[in-house]
Simulated scan of single mutants.
Amino acid sequence: MPIALFRRRGIAPRIGTMLLGTLLAMAAPAMADPGDRIDGSPVVERLDLARLPAGKTRLWVRIDDNDVGQGYFVPVVVIKGAKPGPRFLLTAGIHGDELNGIGVIQQLVEDIDPATLSGTLIAVPGLNAPGLRNSTRAFTGGHNGGGDNLNRLIPRDIHAHGDEGNAAKRYAGRLWSRIIVGNADFAIDLHTQSRGGTYPAYVFVATPAARRIADLLRPDSVYIQTGIDGAVEDMLVANDIPAVTYELGGAEVFDGAMIERGLRGIRNVMVDRGMLPGRPDLRDPAPFLGNLVTNVDSPRGGWAQVRVKLNQFVKKGDVLAVVTDPFGRPVATLTAPLDARVAGLGTDPRTQPGDMVVRLLSWDASLPCLRTGCPPAPPKRDANGK
């Protein structure tokens, strides 16, 4: 059809507009364009504190693309105080079924007045966008429903960019390079126990500096351990940034008591660091210290009836739980293998062979980790936490 006929029918301008739109779309970068916004908050490719104004800024960091070509966006709140001070990185939700930490962050950023803050709070209420969407512990980024534990994939190398590996490794690497690296003088990573279990207020530490943070958080228990390769806390510690993991209760709930406990401890840390005025609130008892975690697993499948409570002290031989068959007849009795404190429980009675039913924390003077912290050593993989 001649082009003149297109013009006569008013089609040529429409074709030109369509072609221009297509060419612009093809030329557009995969990541966020300047001016992109979600619900009024700007979208950025990476967190750059120097470019943010004083006060409270809410923004989204686009981490990568998903399997239908849309973006994974991580929410970040930056509060720049009126006075200079440290950069405090507070994160939650790297496991998508662990929600109390998100409640802590939401309340904390609402409460803080930048005019009374010294330094900068960088708060990330939801690291694992696909896991949170699917209510899964793992990075559930594929259509097959499988996923990897992002808290085993954080790089140690401060120069890692997150451009290699599968989707989960890329995502973890970009959390590291686009949000974490260069934005923290100290850090707290908030967790809970995963689906089917619960923790007390429970902190993991590796160094004397981390132990100082833990003492101010005032949890029920502190587990002093060498760490896990690929965990947020331990990769920060490996780069000389004091950090702890703080476990607050059970999965898939906003537990008001646990959220308030977390808030109280975090404010203590901020007061101690000179970020907030006032004095630490030390109403909670000093924590129990342990350097040995012992999981008591079920040898049989069935229905677990737990006989102990969180923070209870038990003696070797005490009955911890009874596992029954479908008719309620006992098939296994689980007893304490040593004197210890109860530091975790299974809450779902449905139990497979090998499932952890009770987790115990104790002190073993023969182990290298002392009450002040552990000797320098590369973090190692461990089945007992985080």
Rank of each mutant, 00 (worst) to 15 (best):
R283G: 15
P349I: 03
P378G: 00
G131C: 10
S41Y: 09
P337D: 04
R37C: 09
P277Q: 06
D355G: 00
A28M: 14
L59S: 11
G301Q: 12
A168Q: 13
L370R: 10
Q106H: 10
R14T: 12
R211N: 14
V293N: 02
N149F: 02
Y171F: 14
R381T: 05
Y246L: 15
A206S: 11
F327T: 05
V109N: 10
N295A: 12
K80T: 11
G197P: 05
P125A: 02
P378M: 04
Q106P: 02
L334W: 00
S194Y: 01
I179K: 06
G96P: 01
L59N: 09
P200Q: 03
R8N: 07
I241L: 05
I241Y: 02
P379D: 01
A377M: 13
R371W: 01
I228R: 08
R137E: 12
L23V: 15
G141Y: 01
P299A: 08
D33Y: 01
A214C: 07
N295T: 00
D189W: 11
G141M: 01
V342K: 00
L89F: 09
M235C: 04
V68N: 12
T120N: 10
D39T: 13
L190M: 15
A184W: 14
D348W: 07
Q106K: 07
S194C: 12
Q107V: 10
Y223N: 12
A209F: 02
P375Y: 01
D148H: 07
L132G: 07
V77K: 03
R371V: 00
L310A: 14
A168L: 07
L276F: 07
R300G: 02
A4D: 14
A28C: 06
G173Q: 07
R195L: 10
R341C: 10
L5M: 10
F254E: 13
K169C: 05
V124M: 10
V44P: 03
I94P: 06
A209K: 09
G165Y: 01
Y223W: 15
I259F: 06
W60M: 09
D281L: 00
H161K: 14
V293G: 05
L127V: 04
Q193T: 01
P378L: 08
R170N: 13
G131Q: 04
G81Y: 06
M18I: 12
F204W: 00
A210F: 02
R283C: 07
L89Q: 07
R267D: 13
A50P: 04
L127Q: 06
M258P: 02
L216F: 15
R211H: 13
N291Y: 07
T351V: 09
A209Y: 05
N295F: 09
M26F: 12
P368Y: 10
A365I: 04
L52D: 02
D220R: 02
A343I: 12
N149A: 06
L23C: 08
R9Y: 12
D189L: 14
N268T: 03
P326L: 06
R156N: 12
I102Q: 02
G328I: 05
L127A: 06
G21C: 14
F186T: 08
G173C: 11
V293Q: 05
P130V: 01
L24W: 10
P349S: 08
P349R: 08
A129F: 10
P330C: 09
K315M: 04
I11P: 06
